[in-house]
Design a protein around this nucleic acid. Sequence first.
RNA 1: GGCGGCAUAGCCAAGUGGUAAGGCAGAGGUCUGCAACACCUUUACCCCCAGUUCGACUCUGGGUGCCGCCUCCA
Length: 450
Amino acid sequence: MIQFYDTMQQKKVPFKPLHPPKVSMYVCGVTVYDTCHIGHARAYIVFDMIKRHLNESGYTVTHIQNFTDIDDKIIRKANQESVCITTITKRYIRAFFDDMQALNIQPANHYPKATEHMDAIIALIERLLAIGSAFIHTNGDVLFSTAAFDGYGKLSKKVLGELEAGHRDTAQSIEAPSLDFVLWKQSKSGEPAWPSPWGSGRPGWHIECSAMAMQYLGDQIDIHGGGEDLVFPHHENEIAQCESCTGKPFVQYWLHNGFVTLHRQKMSKSLKNTITVRDLLDSVNPGAIRLYLLRTHYRTPFQFSWDGLEETRRSLQKLSTCLAEPETQIPTAAQVADLETFDQRFNQALNDDMNTALAVGVCFEVLRYIQTQGVGRSLVRDCLVYLGIQYDVERSEARPLPASCEALIAEREQARSNKDFSRSDQLRDELLTHGIAVKDTRNGPTWAWV
RNA sequence: GGCGGCAUAGCCAAGUGGUAAGGCAGAGGUCUGCAACACCUUUACCCCCAGUUCGACUCUGGGUGCCGCCUCCA
């Protein structure tokens, strides 16, 4: 039985989709004005794992993930570069897909864009106006009236009155902000705009997800996910918009991943403390990145460090080395049973709210088992494939050995067999200056790029 | 101020009402001409104080510390 921690209920609950074996999953995507950082990588790896596991468990997941491709920051960036917004959005959508592919994240079924769903967005706003959940502000913007929705705050456990009175530290004399949020924004001159019954303008942020989620997945969806920073106000507002219209519970399971922090502070573009996926890919192979992120449960805050990444890279190397060796024994009946147990524990770990940290632990237990029992490599391989961790990337991407270095290695072997160790050590140092580390094994020397 | 979360070995990180997975580092050993790799062995009583219990790290209450949300944000 699969269970997930649902943010709404604040506890783990058994997963029962509305229309099994179908599962509908909407994951909030990125605003495309910059490259992805580790926080994005974590979020999308987490939901990639959830989708993989559900699909492997007999469900058929329809996964929708949006691109927010119209927004203040996109406009600002376009103005800075004196280009149109599509130049910006195309660039970063491309970069997004490159990063996701590198991280071995399986593509969603659709990636709807806000700018391509204006009809659905406008239709939804019209419905909200018709039922009195929205109103037209004096400045011409259309706003959602949070007071009109009884359940407002139920996801984030916020109470309306307190929210209005509450602020961060300073606050007392500051005017209480209204919780009403924009559905349709009047465009200023020079800004991109779309025609609407309320004049030319553009949609607010929250409405696009409601409109596109309902268009692709229906009024009620099984899983809605994203980073925990989206709980309020974004997901709270999505609930208000959808449920005001339909009167039905919008989402069965709200799943939120914890943050990646750097130096004990949330990694975010606005704090300018990001490390991009590209930075990571430049330093280690993608499998190590995935393993590093999956070693921590998805709801636990993740403290990024280069040391931690390096540590993981080394442990993956160990797995990789072991798996590269052929398995020579045929497992006994007892061993088959042992491996079966490991396999079950691996699966149960994932069933229990996607506990990839525990699942990874099982992989290393099997590694130990292989070393003492001589069997089990195929299980570990299967587990790593399941987790999307490519463990042999370094091998396959390795540059070939230059002929000159090949000769040096041969010469060193000759020196060694003559017991001329000062010469062989000298040659080892020389190879090192070419970036090649030589290691002696029973079966002769091996080498690797350093 | 309101709400939510976290606190486990040097570091990272799972977990269960009955005496703590795993990884990295460290120590000892095997292997090696040496080294590296690899392998074997080894390292904790779970933030503090009360309470419940035959028994709590795991449940309850209080405290302390840290983080996040309340503005765009995965």
